[in-house]
């Protein structure tokens, strides 16, 4: 039976939901608004909300001063490259842990997760020195590998959860029906886990895209992605809030659009298996 709700209750709940929604997205909304202001209006006090002269000058300035396309391409290569590499490593790993578990499977999973609990800065120096001696500083290759290693525990965990949802009897049925391991993976397992793999891919592209610690510390120019692009506007010539906002908006726009179009897939993937 549906629970009884009064109109008043519903209005209150709706108002609270909107309040929280606006609160969460406020920084982004404010950044976008600021990007269309002049530098003077941007730091005006009290703040100006909508009644200012909208201008695209900041975007023009940002584009003339730095090469957005190069940063963008670096972001694409690093986020997608590291995710695909991660999936290639994680699919067999998650497969074996989900379908051929041993008594140490749980420990391995916990160990992988525990690496996420370590502060990244703790290994910055050894990683930096290592990459320097290999001549990989400021290279896309290094970032793809580092990003892949950073997100690997999450990828393995997500895939493991999806794989475990597949009833063992279906794979046994496939075996009875004459499928060898290859056919079992191609015709039965993969089609059934495509939603899970897709949402893992999406989430990890987003995580890698937004990652700032390693990208800022391991790149200077050649491999610098959009996070470095934003950062480059934050300090040298004092604070230019409007330009910084324009840069930020340009940096987050692609991933925001991707997230917007794939939100159904993402939510479905993240709640996969919650309801039968």
């Amino acid at each position: 039976m549906a629970r009884q709700t009064t109109t008043g209750q519903r209005a209150l709940v709706t108002a609270v939901a909107w309040g929280i929604g606006i609160l969460i997205s406020f920084p982004i909304i404010w950044t976008v608004l600021t990007s269309f202001k002049t530098e003077a209006t941007a730091i005006a006090s009290p703040p100006v909300w909508f009644s200012f002269d909208w201008t695209l000058q900041n975007y023009i300035d940002v584009n003339t001063r730095s090469d957005y396309a190069r940063y963008f391409m670096n972001s694409v290569v690093i986020s997608i490259g590291s995710t695909l590499l991660g999936l290639a490593v994680a699919i067999p790993a998650a497969w074996s842990m989900a379908f051929q578990p041993t008594k140490n499977t749980k420990n391995v999973l916990m160990w992988m997760l525990s690496t996420k609990m370590m502060p990244a800065v703790g290994v910055l120096v050894p990683v930096y020195m290592g990459l320097r001696s290999m001549g990989l500083l400021d290279s896309r290759t290094a970032l793809v590998i580092i990003m892949m290693l950073m997100n690997l525990p999450i990828i393995v965990w997500m895939l493991f959860t999806y794989f475990r949802e597949i009833p063992g009897e279906i794979l046994e049925a496939a075996r009875m029906d004459g499928a060898n391991l290859r056919n079992e993976i191609i015709y039965v397992l993969t089609p059934m886990t495509v939603p899970g793999i897709a949402s893992t891919l999406l989430l990890n592209v987003i995580l890698a895209w937004n990652e700032a610690f390693w990208t800022l510390n391991l790149t200077t120019t050649n491999a610098a992605p959009l996070t470095a692009f934003i950062a480059s506007f934050s300090s040298p010539q004092g604070l230019f809030y409007a330009k910084l906002s324009a840069a930020s908006t340009m940096a987050i726009a692609p991933i925001l659009i991707l997230g917007w179009f794939s939100q159904k897939q993402l939510v479905r993937g993240l709640t996969f298996g919650a309801v039968k």
Binding site: P167, E169, I170, E172, A173, A174, Y187, V188, M192
Partner: peptide, 8 residues
């Protein structure tokens, strides 16, 4: 199988 184990 008990659960039918059809390919969904």
């Amino acid at each position: 199988f008990q659960s039918y184990a059809l390919y969904p």
